[in-house]
Design a protein around this nucleic acid. Structure first.
Lengths: 346, 346
DNA sequence: CCCGGCGGCGAGAGCGCTCTCGCCGCGTGC
DNA sequence: GCACGCGGCGAGAGCGCTCTCGCCGCCGGG
């Protein structure tokens, strides 16, 4: 049992079908130029023997692996605290398997891992990379760029301005923030506060920018930096209430912080949404539905984001041309739309 | 740039160091039998050229891939609704990278995917598999067994009784349930209800068994089947309240259902923990901390579970012997301990 | 009827590595 | 001092595949 029969080779199939290896190869790889009766004989031999091509041998000559790396830089545990990651992976996985590509997952935690990842990528095991790098000081993007691998980023990378043609897929963080704040204005709120995410991440910065777009010249006392965690949101909310007890709405940079803010508000006897309206961001389930009251928030389609990243990368690979250049056929970055989901908190 | 220099081969390193390919191979693979001055010369040549072995060529002859597949069967979206999956992956990833193995992720959703997975595994791209299969009717375990690949399951598989030597890592669901119920008894509660998980999953069955262990002969009216979701927990709680308005405690099969139960209890004006004490299972963060009140629950070390699965598989691979047999060096299955985390709900 | 062209197929080289085998040079024992 | 043994290293085969090249047979045109 453990000593299973040796896997059949191309040679074996060729022998059984009475043809040459080359012909079997042609049939297996679906190239034309094999006449029907012969092709059929080969196909029969293939299933009779249960032949499956040896990918290692194939890669050795084609220099393709039909595998892409998904690299998740995770200096903090944030990524794992929420289900984002899983959803994105799911989207990526769907798209990759639809194109017969494998997904090699690389999770990095500290600087040591970076070297390992760089080595792996340089080792030419994969045809491309999908990278989630959150923080501004992350050396990973640079390392990957140097490895010369076609790459698509999840979320707009920080140094986007510097290099051109960096491929990425992002959420419309700024537009979503504008929607959220406009919604609050529409409810008649005027003293609207904002709890930002960790400002070393572009998503947090973009959401803050969106807030500012609508609020024009917001009172600085109405902006407090959080860190994307519930505890951080709670702390920020308390600080805001201390400074501006008369605030009547708050736009939190994500749902986790909104949940924290909700607790602080409850603690201070503020009713939501009557006294203070709250809007979150992400529509992170089940959190957003489980808060008291359920959260009005900005929904992003995480799975679609993953799918799009994969699609973008595969297209670059197919084109086989300089991936680091925009060639007019597609934008360097794609920004996905968001939608406001109204629940009870605002 | 896109046309990067061709990667140096063993041959090139050998030429530069003035030795044969075989010698370079020996040095690179750390086998002894190369004297120091020579070995040093080879090492220098390796870094000067930036040589990285071609894994495809190596696999072709060694028949090892130093890669294992992680297969997540996910007929429903449950796995993605909670952060379990990510944590397990993290544990697996850590252990694998520590042993220079790659992680190939296969997400399956429907039956079509099964064929694809089976084909992939049969294709001999990986040395082993780690499988998360939740449901009782899942054909995946059978397919994998047939592929003859060394495999370790996450969670006790259903047909464990049938086949012997199936390797798995599980949480002490039954013991944890006992701890939870005993805790409630210790608080003086007597009319303790249980909301089960989906009973086609061993974890749900085991937790129910633990509940029964302690409650001896529980009133059937105090047991209601849920489905591991918050909505299901809410529904189940309502049913329980309708049947037994006098219940004074509830042990929910997981934290999500506990959160749902909390809502139903609030809706019915029951105070927690004063009127009804609630205990969950999993210690799923941030949910368990964010409920009102924060949840007393049974914590399992998810990351450790992943790590252990990987370790078990790698050991089986190293031994290189019949993976499907217990050989006395280790148990076929390992069950991880749990701990009760006291918060405010009980 | 003959020749050129073209399409279908086979032969063979070679991808980059590992590993066996055998050679050579040194040290040791008698 | 000579034979023998052993350890260090090189030569070469071969893993399973792809792909180029050239051969051969068939068809059409002159």
């Amino acid at each position: 049992m453990s000593e299973s029969a040796p896997r059949p080779t191309l040679e074996a199939v060729a022998a059984r079908a009475g043809v040459s290896r080359a012909t079997v190869s042609r049939v297996v790889n679906g190239s034309d130029g094999v006449r029907e009766p012969l092709a059929e004989r080969v196909r029969r031999a293939v299933d009779e023997l249960g032949y499956v091509p040896n990918q290692a041998a194939r890669s050795l000559v084609t220099r393709r692996h039909d595998a892409i790396a998904v690299i998740v830089a995770e200096p903090e545990t944030r990524v794992f605290a929420d289900p984002f990651f899983a959803r994105q992976l799911r989207g990526i996985s769907k798209e990759l398997t639809a194109h017969d590509n494998q997904l090699v997952l690389l999770l990095t935690e500290d600087r040591d891992d970076h070297a390992r990842v760089a080595r792996y990528l340089a080792g030419g095991h994969v045809d491309g990379a999908l990278v989630f790098s959150l923080h501004i000081d992350d050396p990973l993007p640079g390392l990957i760029q140097r490895a010369g691998l076609p790459t698509v980023f999840g979320g707009r990378p920080h140094w986007n301005g510097g290099e051109d043609g960096v491929r990425y897929v992002d959420t419309d963080n700024r537009g979503g923030a504008r929607d959220a704040v406009r919604h609050l204005l529409g409810l008649g709120r005027r003293r609207i506060a904002h709890i930002t995410g960790a400002l070393d991440q572009t998503s947090a910065v973009d959401r803050l920018d969106g807030f500012r777009d609508v609020m024009a010249d917001p009172d600085p006392a109405l902006v407090e930096e959080g860190d994307f965690t519930a505890a951080g949101g709670e702390r920020a909310m308390r600080a805001l209430l201390a400074r501006r007890p008369d605030l009547d709405a708050v736009f939190a940079g994500n749902d986790l912080m909104a949940a924290g803010a909700l607790r602080a508000l409850r603690e201070h006897g503020r009713r939501v949404p009557d006294d203070v309206a709250v809007v979150g961001f992400d529509d992170m389930l089940p959190i957003a539905e489980q808060t008291e009251p359920p959260l009005t928030t900005v929904r992003q389609d995480i799975e679609e984001m993953g799918r799009l990243m994969a699609r973008m990368l595969l297209r670059d690979l197919d084109r086989g041309t300089a991936p680091a250049e925009t060639d007019g056929t597609g934008p360097s970055g794609v920004v996905l739309p968001v939608t406001l989901v109204r629940r009870d908190s605002a």
